[in-house]
């Protein structure tokens, strides 16, 4: 378990120009030092390197938000799309060109707020996409308003008297929507993040990573420490084929479990589409 101070991550990114992942590194990230999103980006570099995805076949699609800046930091094709609309754009890319590796990245506001209508459909269609949701329970880019995953009572500029609504839990949503690969990670756990992103990309079908990725500037409630204190790895021997057990574990807030909750190998959208096309040939 690696434990990083706020500044070290940025410093490391600066130095990493010569690392083994340099082939996939592009512009230097512009996030605040210590931002959780560094870990997700690092994880994606690692995965690209481990799976040796040629940049020409690698497409990263993002929404809008601090998290949305991913494409500019990665060498590959990038599409910095619209707030909440990364998933449908990525769907078009993947269905039109199934040979590409397509990763979708976005924030909590992006994915379960404004874009919340797209997530279920990508999951149930089992498009061969990897979706990384960087959850800081805040609207980072717009400077700190409550998001759909903010805890009740949380105060912000737009919730001066405290958040009245209950938070959504993206992990349970993914399970309910029928995603075939569901994992939760925490940006303090760099190795776990890299490991699970790699597995997610390898998965044939819709893979979902719920990355707890604290905003060090605007979120004073959900922080590295608060998450860390509640964190626990999934119990030994958890059956990743058991969706309802996964659901129960994912619902828990004390502790907040991390790891691979669920994975099933069923035909992906691409497999089904191919079957239809082949059937039409004769």
């Amino acid at each position: 378990m690696s434990f990083l101070s706020k500044q070290t991550v940025l410093d490391e990114f600066k130095k990493a120009k010569e690392s083994k992942t340099k082939e996939w590194r592009d512009n230097l990230p512009t996030w605040c030092p210590g931002c959780g999103h560094f870990t997700g980006l690092h994880g994606l570099y690692e995965a690209a390197e481990r799976l040796n995805i040629p940049p020409k076949d690698f497409v990263v699609v993002s929404g809008i938000g601090c998290s949305g800046r991913f494409p500019f930091f990665i060498k590959g094709f990038g599409l910095h799309g619209l707030h909440g609309r990364a998933i449908p754009i990525a769907t078009g890319i993947k269905v039109a060109s199934p040979d590409l590796t397509v990763v979708v990245v976005g924030g909590d506001g992006d994915g379960v707020g404004i874009g919340g209508g797209h997530f279920p459909h990508a999951a149930r269609s089992n498009f061969n996409l990897t979706y990384i949701l960087l959850d800081n329970s805040i609207y980072g880019l717009t400077k700190g308003q409550i998001s759909p995953t903010s805890p009740m009572g949380m105060k912000s500029g737009t919730s001066p008297y405290g958040n009245i609504a209950r938070p959504l839990n993206p992990t349970t949503l993914a399970l309910a929507y029928g995603a075939t690969f569901v994992a939760r990670t925490f940006s303090r756990e760099r190795d776990m993040v890299s490991e699970l992103i790699t597995k997610a990309i390898q998965h044939k079908g819709f893979s979902f990573i719920h990355d707890l990725s604290p905003c060090v500037v605007f979120n004073k409630v959900v922080t590295y420490d608060s998450v860390n204190d509640a964190s626990a790895m999934l119990p030994e021997g958890h059956d990743i084929l058991d969706r309802s057990k996964a659901m129960t574990l994912a619902e828990s807030t004390e502790p907040i479990y991390q790891g691979l909750f669920f994975r099933e190998e069923v035909p992906s959208f691409d497999d089904h589409a191919k079957q239809v096309r082949d059937g039409l040939k004769d």
Binding site: I87, P88, G92, V95, G117
Partner: peptide
């Protein structure tokens, strides 16, 4: 799931 998604996917396909 809606027209936003539809045009989004179309943009994606053209991007590809």
């Amino acid at each position: 799931e809606d027209e936003i998604a539809a045009i989004g996917a179309v943009l994606g396909a053209w991007f590809a």
